Amino acid sequence: MATMTRTGDELSALNRRLAAKPAAHLKVEGLSIGYSTLRGRFRAVEDVAFEVPAGTNLGLVGESGCGKSTVVKALMGLQPASAHVTGTALLDGQNVLGLDDHGLRDVRWNRIALITQSAMNALDPVYCIGDQITEAIRAHEPVSRATAWARAEEMFALVGLPTARLREFPHQFSGGMRQRAVIAMALALNAGLLLADEPTTALDPIMQSQIMARIRGIHAHMRRSMILVTHDIAVVAETCENTVVMYAGKVAESGPTTAVLDRPLHPYTMGLQNAFPRLPVPGQPRQPLISIPGVVPNLLLPPPGCRFASRCPFATDLCRNVVPPVVQMGAQSAACHFTHRAEEFRAAAAQPETWRSLKGSA
């Protein structure tokens, strides 16, 4: 009985300490990441900048291979040894890029937590789930194993998993349950910044909806800062206050989610919108799905101008030869030479023949 009382008191004290943690503020500037290959430097990310105010959600959007996950891994210090990283990522004023092993141990799970896109690869197959969560807790908090286990039980209850299953191994969980277990581990220390890297990858649509609903509910309850990495605009629209659209390793557009999705300034954002189904509007013809033709450029030899120029129906010789400036329009910004013609381009981009011909009138 005395042991249970001590555990309960210690757990209460632990929960108070963790609840007192503030949401984190992150400011990324000039982030560039390259990899050394036999064919030269592969420029995976170039001059990326964005900000996550404390307690807000940022959606990092773009097609596969645009550099979203590379940015997230750099924030956690998970890039391979061959990576060359420059720029700054200020987490509450501290630059987390280039930290040594000791500095990274203090940051990971404690200040920044990661929900990976492959839960099976994120969990150690030879340890039960409960031991893995308690290890993360005790690495940062001076508590007993019993208290850390009790905290893990609270996290399992929060994500909707039976606490008895903490003693089971990853292979005994379904894909959706493993994803919830990873979310529970990420929340265990109430880190100020949560990185959700494609958290519903490889799950069926019903489970995807359940996982995202769980993440949204937890964020509303705990008010942590979060970066949600996804290629799904619909998920961003439901979840995030602000959005950054990436293409071929660079930021194409950023701003408040409502503005970016309702009034996109960059042709790539317009193309992404057209590729996602929308609910029909009574009295109006159904909007056709329009794919973006072409492929992402080779980042071993990126084009001299706008990286989207070869796939953009509005591109001119200026776009193909000169890197576009980042133009600020209110709270939005876009890297495009023709942001002043965005309204005209939006109307044209909604027509399938615009993308089929790839011949704009700019």
Rank of each mutant, 00 (worst) to 15 (best):
L11Q: 00
S12K: 12
A13F: 05
L14P: 07
R16Y: 04
L18G: 10
A23D: 01
K27Q: 13
G30M: 06
G40E: 08
R41F: 12
V48D: 08
F50K: 09
V52N: 03
P53C: 13
A54W: 10
G59A: 15
G62W: 06
K68T: 12
S69D: 01
L75R: 09
Q79P: 00
T86N: 10
T86I: 07
G87H: 14
G87E: 12
L90I: 14
G98N: 04
L99P: 01
L99D: 03
N110H: 15
Q117Y: 04
A122M: 03
A122P: 02
P125D: 03
V126G: 02
I133E: 01
E135L: 04
E135Q: 11
A136F: 00
E141Y: 11
E141C: 14
P142M: 09
V143P: 03
R145P: 00
A152V: 02
E153F: 04
E153A: 13
P162Q: 06
E168G: 06
F173A: 02
S174T: 11
M177D: 00
I183D: 00
A184G: 07
A186I: 05
L193A: 10
A196L: 03
E198C: 01
T200R: 06
T201G: 03
L203Q: 08
S209F: 08
I218Y: 09
H219N: 14
R223Y: 06
R224V: 05
S225Q: 04
M226V: 02
L228T: 08
H231S: 02
I233S: 09
I233F: 14
A234K: 12
A234W: 04
V236L: 04
A237D: 01
T243W: 04
Y247G: 12
S254T: 13
G255F: 09
G255A: 07
P256M: 11
T257N: 00
D262F: 03
L265P: 11
M270L: 12
G271I: 07
L279Q: 13
V281C: 06
P288T: 14
P293G: 04
V296W: 00
L301R: 15
G305S: 04
C312F: 06
C312D: 00
F314R: 05
L318H: 14
N321C: 04
V322K: 13
V327Q: 12
A335I: 11
R341Q: 14
A342T: 07
E343Q: 12
A348K: 12
A349R: 05
E353P: 02
E353H: 15
S361F: 06
S361T: 13
A362F: 06
